[in-house]
Computed example of a mutant assay.
Amino acid sequence: MQPNGAEAIVVTREGAVAVLTLNRPQRMNAINNAIRGGLPDALAALDEDPEVRAIVIHGGEGRGFCVGADITEPRAPRSPVAVRREMMGRAWVDSFDRCATPVIAAVHGFCLGGGLEIALACDIRMASPDASFSLPETGLGLIPGAGGTQRMHRILGLGRTLDLLLTGDRIDAAEAHRIGLVTRLAKDRESLLAEAVELAARIAARAPAATVYVKEAARSGADLHLAAGMALERSLFALLSGTADKTEAAAAFAEKRPPRFTGE
Score class of each variant (00 low, 15 high):
M1V: 11
P3Y: 02
P3Q: 05
N4C: 10
N4D: 15
N4V: 10
V11K: 07
R13N: 12
T21C: 00
L22K: 02
N33S: 14
A34Y: 10
A34C: 12
R36I: 03
R36M: 14
G37M: 09
G37D: 13
G38F: 00
L39D: 01
D41P: 06
A42Y: 04
A42D: 03
A42P: 03
A44L: 08
A45K: 14
D47L: 06
E48K: 15
P50H: 01
R53H: 13
R53D: 10
I57P: 02
H58D: 14
G59A: 07
G60W: 01
R63Q: 13
C66R: 01
A69E: 10
D70I: 02
I71W: 06
I71S: 06
T72M: 02
P74K: 00
P77W: 05
R78F: 05
S79C: 08
E86V: 02
M88E: 12
G89R: 11
G89T: 09
G89C: 07
W92K: 01
D94H: 13
S95V: 06
R98I: 08
T101P: 03
V103W: 02
I104Q: 03
A105D: 03
C111G: 04
L112D: 10
G113D: 12
G113Y: 11
I118A: 03
A119R: 03
A121G: 06
D123H: 08
P129A: 00
A131F: 00
S134I: 06
I143Y: 13
I143E: 13
I143P: 08
I143N: 11
P144D: 00
G148I: 01
Q150C: 12
R154Q: 15
L156C: 09
L156S: 04
G157C: 05
L158W: 13
L158I: 15
T161Y: 07
L164Y: 01
L164H: 00
L164C: 03
G168T: 12
G168F: 11
I171D: 07
I171C: 08
H177C: 12
H177P: 09
R178W: 14
G180A: 10
L181I: 14
L185A: 05
A186D: 06
K187T: 15
E195M: 08
A196C: 06
A196H: 00
A196D: 02
E198G: 09
A200V: 08
A200K: 01
A200Q: 06
A201D: 07
A204H: 07
A207Y: 03
P208E: 05
P208M: 00
Y213L: 12
S220P: 02
D223Y: 14
F237Y: 12
L240G: 05
S241W: 05
G242A: 10
T243D: 04
A244I: 09
K246D: 07
T247H: 12
A251I: 09
A252C: 07
K256V: 11
P259V: 05
P259S: 05
R260E: 13
R260L: 09
T262G: 15
